[in-house]
């Protein structure tokens, strides 16, 4: 019979560590219930669709690791800090928008540049939303709560920039009612500049192996997409005197960099398990060509930056190398 009523210094699951657990670990570590039993993630018939689905796509994933819970977000982001961080960044964006509106920024833009913005800039809300959905898939499938949390913040970040893009779309629509702002769906669906990314993202969304999904998303598709816009389009915008677009994209890049940091940590952990090396190489070999096609098509539409595609591909390979994987 237990008579012990005294307390503990830390969660039993964190006891024995060499240092005192941080608040991040206390509220983020080892929280999933779906990973407790390899046979059934959910407390119902093992042969129920969702149990088979989880078994197949996580238990049978191309990526395996004996201890996914060993993953730590290098930013150690927890919910309340996320809001503090992003509220501050949003305040900065509010300031940018207010200041540029006051200066009638849009009216001073070069008409040729403005004409290209629906295609190059505001149509991006569709792929951003695809990335939001893809992150949500990682949230619901990841075999560690520390991974789930990073993906949840990433998904919310994507919606952040859809919102800001919608804001700008409306502002530009008011300033230039005849340029097609707000009617970008046809561009996303049919414009050759977008078809590469459309194919990449549709295929990514329909990829249900969790390991392949997270690598294809965070090591290939998202950084490729972010590099195109947040680096190359930002550069073109600056050259065209569109400082607002440039500064918004540069602000978006900060969120992308956070994604890259946890991606590097995740890949580093993944590579601790030797067979994953070959698995990741296979994933990259499958997805990199799609990304390259997407980059080429999109960058070809970018005016004034002839070497954009090469720069994006170089940037992407650098990010992949930083993750410790050899680009395909």
């Amino acid at each position: 019979m237990n008579t012990a009523t005294n307390g503990l210094k830390t969660w039993t699951t964190l006891a024995g560590g060499r240092r005192r657990p941080t608040e991040y670990e206390v509220v983020s570590y080892n929280l999933h219930t779906r990973t407790r039993h390899p046979g059934y993630a959910y407390e119902l018939s093992p042969e129920l669709f969702m149990n088979r689905f989880y078994r197949e796509h996580v238990g049978g994933s191309v990526l395996q690791h004996p201890d996914w819970d060993a993953f730590r977000d290098p930013d150690e982001l927890i919910y309340r800090q996320y809001n503090v961080l992003q509220d501050g960044h949003e305040e900065y964006v509010d300031g940018l928008l207010e200041e540029h509106a006051r200066n009638e920024h849009d009216l001073a833009l070069d008409p040729a540049w403005l004409k290209g913005l629906p295609r190059l800039y505001t149509a991006a809300r569709y792929p951003l939303h695809a990335l939001q959905m893809a992150a949500a898939y990682v949230v619901q499938m990841a075999p560690a709560s520390t991974i789930t949390n990073c993906a949840a913040f990433q998904g919310a970040d994507q919606y952040r920039w859809i919102s800001r893009l919608a804001y700008r779309t409306r502002e530009l629509q008011v300033a230039c009612p005849d340029l097609g702002f707000g009617a970008e769906r046809a561009l996303w669906e049919d414009d050759p500049a977008w078809q590469g990314f459309r194919e990449l993202l549709e295929k990514l969304l329909a990829t249900y192996d969790w390991g392949e999904h997270v690598i294809a998303l965070n090591v290939v598709a998202k950084p490729a997409f972010d590099l195109c816009r947040c680096r190359q389009l930002a550069r073109a915008a600056r050259d065209a005197g569109d400082t607002l677009t440039a500064m918004l994209l540069e602000a978006e890049w900060r969120d992308s960099e956070r994604s890259q940091r946890w991606t590097q940590a995740l890949v580093a952990l993944t590579l601790q398990h030797a067979p994953n090396d070959a698995a990741i190489a296979t994933i990259l070999a499958r997805w990199q060509p799609l990304a390259d096609t997407a980059i080429d098509a999109w960058c070809a539409a970018l005016p004034g930056v002839p070497e954009a595609a090469a720069a994006v591909k170089r940037g992407l390979r650098e990010l992949q190398q930083a993750c410790g994987v050899q680009p395909a």
């Binding site: 951003l128 859809i162 409306r170 502002e171 707000g182």
Partner: peptide, 9 residues
């Protein structure tokens, strides 16, 4: 003014 655009995706 812009909310509907953000959910036209």
């Amino acid at each position: 003014d812009w909310y509907d655009i953000a959910r036209d995706t």
